[in-house]
Computed example of a mutant assay.
Amino acid sequence: MLLEPRPFRPFKTCGEYLYAMKEDLAEWLNTLYELDIDVDNFMKQLETGVVLCRHANHVLKKAREFEANGSQCLDITIPKKDVIYRDGVNPGTFRARDNVSNFISWCRLLNIHECLLFETDDLVLRKNEKSFILCLLEVARRGSKIGILAPTLIQLEEEIDRELAEDSADKNNDKNDDNLIKPQIITNDLKSLHERVVELLSRCTCPTQYNLEYISDGKYRIGDTKVLIFVRILRSHVMVRVGGGWDTLEHYLEKHDPCRCRSGTRRSGSLPDSLGSSAPHFRVLRDPNAGQRVSLFRVS
């Protein structure tokens, strides 16, 4: 079979999920604090630690209000003292680094697991953007428990958790599975979530396709595993929940679809648009609304 290089992208698929997370976190911080952060300046805007410490103190304030209102079952540890920081500092200076270090110390007091923490240089020198982004998402999860607006990804996690709880309750009550199906999410390009999933899967043109079993909107069983995956659309990205985090569906497939996980190459499914009508077309067998297995195959 012919092999061809990966098409040009502004980022590799392994970095796309970080791009999606930064995009989501930037919008979240802009909403909370009326800032002007975007994906391109995300790390630069936060490297002084001012916004981070400001958010930490906002969490502390909300937690105290939460407790003062007599709310019960606050299952997260909340530090007692405010985070001390200096405003108006320049990036890369000792005071900026001190702000970031104080935020990290506050995260430890919040009992965030060490594997989700980051080091000062991860942010200031961009040594590990992933660690910083995952830590900030975890801080957002803690804040959502006391009523602070959460990023869209965290809201999607909560939606999936509710769906799992409803599924469990429905099984206990022996309800019909058809009642679990919800309306599909429609994106701006008028493609449904399922259409986006099928489009990504159809890029593989191997004789034996990677199986896709449609369960309900946003819920699939992919490959030969019996493990369910949950898929959601986040702006222009198709995201899949993996464990306690997120990945893009394309990167997930590259790691699990045998024909895509070859280093540096991909089967000829990733064909450029310039091929036009000469590119292979795909059909979906069986109605996905019936919850049956969907087979993708090439039509000559």
Rank of each mutant, 00 (worst) to 15 (best):
E4K: 13
A20R: 03
K22V: 03
K22T: 05
E23T: 11
W28D: 01
N30W: 02
L35Q: 13
D36P: 06
D36C: 14
D38T: 07
D38V: 02
F42N: 00
K44H: 09
Q45D: 15
G49F: 00
G49V: 01
C53E: 00
R54F: 00
K62F: 00
A63D: 01
E65P: 06
E65Q: 14
A68K: 13
N69F: 05
N69D: 15
G70P: 07
L74E: 10
I84E: 11
R86C: 14
D87T: 15
P91M: 04
P91V: 02
T93G: 04
F94D: 08
R95G: 01
A96S: 12
S101A: 11
C107A: 13
R126G: 02
K127D: 13
L136M: 12
L136Y: 06
L136H: 03
A150I: 06
P151W: 04
L153N: 07
I154F: 06
I154H: 02
E157L: 05
D161T: 12
E163A: 04
E163Y: 03
D167Q: 07
D167A: 03
S168Y: 05
N173E: 15
D177P: 15
N179R: 14
L180E: 08
L180G: 01
P183I: 04
Q184F: 05
I186G: 05
L190M: 15
S192R: 06
S192Q: 03
E199T: 13
L200F: 01
P207S: 09
Y210C: 07
Y210I: 12
L212T: 11
S216E: 15
R221Q: 14
D224R: 09
D224P: 00
L228S: 10
L228Q: 09
I229G: 00
R232P: 01
R241S: 04
W246Q: 10
D247P: 03
T248W: 00
E250I: 04
R262W: 09
S263M: 08
G264V: 03
A279T: 09
P280W: 09
R283V: 06
V284K: 06
L285Q: 05
N289Y: 08
G291A: 07
S295C: 03
R298T: 10
R298E: 10
S300P: 12
S300M: 11
